[in-house]
Design a protein around this nucleic acid. Structure first.
Lengths: 166, 166
DNA sequence: CCAGAACGCGCAATATTATTTCATAGGGGC
DNA sequence: GCCCCTATGAAATAATATTGCGCGTTCTGG
C-alpha cells in the first residue's frame, strides 16, 4: 500500500510544497496545523524517504530565448535491453533533450526537447538524433502552445481515494 | 533579444535555483560570487520579471501510489480556435491530466497523464477523454520507464551561445 | 575632461526562520 | 496498569532573510 505510512499531515505537507517549494517552514507548519519543529522533522523525513526528490525553480524557457519546444517520437531498430539503455544514456547527454520516456506500443520513446530556434533544433534532429545509433525513425511535433503544465501529483485524487477507503 | 537584460550573475542564479530551488540565499550568493543582499534583490527582480515562475517540490508520484503514467495523443474533429480552447479548458479540469500541449502535425494535442492504476486510467480514458466533446481520436502509450526528466532550461547551451556571440 | 545622476555593491543592524534541546503526552504490547 | 516507542510543542540558540545606508563605478551631458 503506497503512501500508507503517510498521515494526512504528511500529505498536506507534500501538497503544499509541491505548490510552493519555497514556503518557509513556519508558514508550512501553520498551514498543516502543527508547530514548526515537528513540521521540519517531517519534511526532512519525507526528503530522506524519497517522497520529495528535490526542489526546483520553474524558469521560463521562452524568456531565456528557448522559443522552440518539440515532442519527438522515436523508434529503434533493436529493443534489446542493452540497446535501449544505450539510447537512454545518449539522451541524458543531449542538453536539448529535457525528458526521455520509454513507451509501450509502436513508438519506443517520447522525448521532450527545447531549442533556441528552429534551425538549432533541425541541426540537432538531423545531425544528432536521427543519426544516432540504433535509431530507426523519428517523428517530431512542434508545440504550438501549452494549455496545462502541472507536473507532479494530483493530491485531490489521492485524498479522495483515501477517504473513500476509510 | 531574449534574456539580454540578464548578466552572467543573473543567469547563474537562475541555473542554481533551477537545480536547487530551496538553496538558502546565503549559499546562493556565495555560489554566484556576490554578497547576500544584492543576491536577494536579484532573485526578487527575476521573480517579478517572470523569469522565475515559481518553486515546486518534486514529489515522487509512484511513491504516492500513482503507478501509471501515460502519454495520450489526441485528435479533434474541429480545429476552430473556440473548439481548441474548449478542449484545453476541459483538460485543465481533469486532475489526471498533468500536461496538455497543442501540437502541429496530424495529432492536435499530447497529454501527459497519471493514475493510481490501469483501471482508473481506463475509466478516465473511455468515460471522460474519449467521450469528451469534439474528440475524434485518442492514442495512448504507457510509460514503461523514465530515462530523463529535467524540465527547464539547458543553461549549458545558453551560456555557450552567449559566449559565442561575444 | 569634468560634474552629477543612476545603478549596484557590500557592511552593519534588525527581523524572521531554522534547528536543536528537552520535557511531556498519547498509544500499543505485555 | 506499566513500560517503551513515537511524536509533539515550548524555549533557547544558530542561521538566514531583509532593510537601511554609504561608497565606488559607470554613464551622460555639458
Amino acid at each position: 500500500m503506497p503512501g500508507s505510512k503517510l498521515d494526512p499531515i504528511d500529505r498536506k505537507i507534500l501538497a503544499e510544497l509541491q505548490a510552493d517549494g519555497r514556503m518557509t517552514n513556519v508558514e508550512l507548519a501553520r498551514r498543516v496545523g502543527i508547530s514548526a519543529p515537528p513540521c521540519l522533522r517531517r519534511v526532512r523525513t519525507l526528503e530522506e524517504a524519497g517522497f520529495i526528490r528535490g526542489y526546483h525553480a520553474d524558469v521560463d524557457a521562452r524568456e531565456l530565448g528557448f522559443e522552440v519546444q518539440v515532442f519527438a517520437m522515436v523508434g529503434l531498430l533493436s529493443q534489446a535491453e542493452a540497446d535501449l539503455s544505450k539510447f537512454e544514456a545518449r539522451c541524458r547527454e543531449w542538453p536539448l533533450v529535457r525528458e526521455c520516456h520509454m513507451l509501450n506500443g509502436e513508438v519506443d520513446f517520447v522525448l521532450k526537447c527545447v531549442a533556441p530556434d528552429l534551425s538549432t533544433f533541425q541541426s540537432f534532429l538531423t545531425e544528432e538524433l536521427t543519426a544516432a545509433d540504433n535509431v530507426a525513425s523519428v517523428k517530431t511535433s512542434l508545440v504550438i502552445r501549452c494549455a496545462k503544465d502541472q507536473p507532479g501529483v494530483p493530491f485531490e485524487i489521492l485524498e479522495e481515494r483515501l477517504s473513500r477507503k476509510a
